[in-house]
Simulated scan of single mutants.
Amino acid sequence: MSEKKVGILTFHRASNYGAVLQAYALQQYLKKGNIYNEIIDYRCSHIEKVYSENFMVSGKSPISMVKKNIKKWVNIKKNKKFIEFRRNYLNISKNTYNLENKFDMKKVYDVFIVGSDQVWNLNQTGKDTTYFLDFVDKGKWSYAASLGKNSITNEEKEIFKDMINSFEKVSIREEENIDIIKSVGFKKQINVNVDPVFLLNKNEWVSLIEKEEKRKEKKEKYVLIYTVKQPVHLIEKAKKYAQEHNCKVIYLHSDFNYKEFFKNQNIKNVFVKSPIEFLKLILDAECVFTTSFHGTAFSILFEKEFWAEVDKDGKLNNRIFNLLQKLNIEDRILDYNPKTLDSKINWKVVRENVLKEREKSKKYLFDE
């Protein structure tokens, strides 16, 4: 594949830490293997609409208008940081594509890799079948593509059946999605690979941080909370851990939540951080408490003690659970009500498991 031009199709435009960092990681890993690649600047109308709504302001009362104006201001500032990251660190195609001109992409690239992230979650894309590479007949690969759920509707099965059987190589992120792919008649090998962020090692991520953030002596010890879903017992547990270890608490929110902000005035609430500042917050933390897949992933990569909350109203976050199961550290699941928050992770074992997964990915991506 080294002589071919590769186009990566993913959610690179989302103002989401995991989305841009997994895109960066896959691009860098292919580059290390001497494979020229670009992230295709595809604009999915459904995703564009979802993110544009973050900047709209409307409300029935003056108070709701104030709340929405604050949220809009936070989102604008945060979005600027993501635009800057994409400009500085992602090699994105000069041409922009959409539903109307997507067939032009096949004139530019020899191989297409779709993934990672929830590119095969039809709810996320508004049923945009571009993420099944329906505009091209050959050179169709996926890498760690996620469906974002463990079952699909009959309508979705029909879409999968029509689209996925023309793929030359299929790699998914979650083990339980194998049966779904098989159920639509896919006969080729189905590979299960780790999220692209694991393709780069700790030193490579630290090098990225140091391009913008000079390493300084930490002024204060802190526990980091990072949530993408409403936490259940996470904040309470984090505060308890911080008190016992004489740490302050920093709460990084994925979105501005008015209620959470005023409910947690005794801790430092943070809303506007760049992807690199996000990495540094995890790197310098004493311990991480999170409901996020990528919050969990980077805690592992930086070898930080962490706790993940994966169950919300009986709905399991399979992405986190599968990752911890794969690395043999399911005991970091906070929902299991650990007797102590001071138990330590055997990083030697975790490191070995991550290396095994990285080798599997290397074989998949570079062995034709």
Rank of each mutant, 00 (worst) to 15 (best):
K67F: 06
Y222F: 06
I235W: 05
K263H: 07
K221M: 01
D134S: 14
K78W: 06
I320L: 01
L90D: 01
G148H: 06
I190T: 06
L283V: 03
I40F: 05
K202W: 01
F11E: 00
E38F: 10
I209H: 00
S58T: 14
S343F: 13
K127N: 13
E309V: 12
D284M: 05
K268H: 08
E368Q: 13
D104K: 14
Q118A: 07
V6G: 01
L90H: 09
K127D: 09
H233K: 15
C44F: 08
Q230H: 11
L334I: 10
Y364V: 10
K229H: 12
S64H: 13
V194T: 10
F298T: 09
E359R: 15
D335A: 03
E260H: 14
K71W: 00
N91A: 11
D41R: 12
L224K: 10
F55L: 15
D311P: 09
F160I: 13
K312A: 03
N123C: 05
S151K: 15
S207H: 02
C44E: 02
M105C: 07
K107Q: 11
A14Q: 10
L316S: 04
K60P: 06
K348W: 02
W307P: 08
L252Y: 01
I178F: 00
N337R: 15
N98C: 08
D128S: 07
N353G: 03
E158I: 12
E3C: 13
K280R: 12
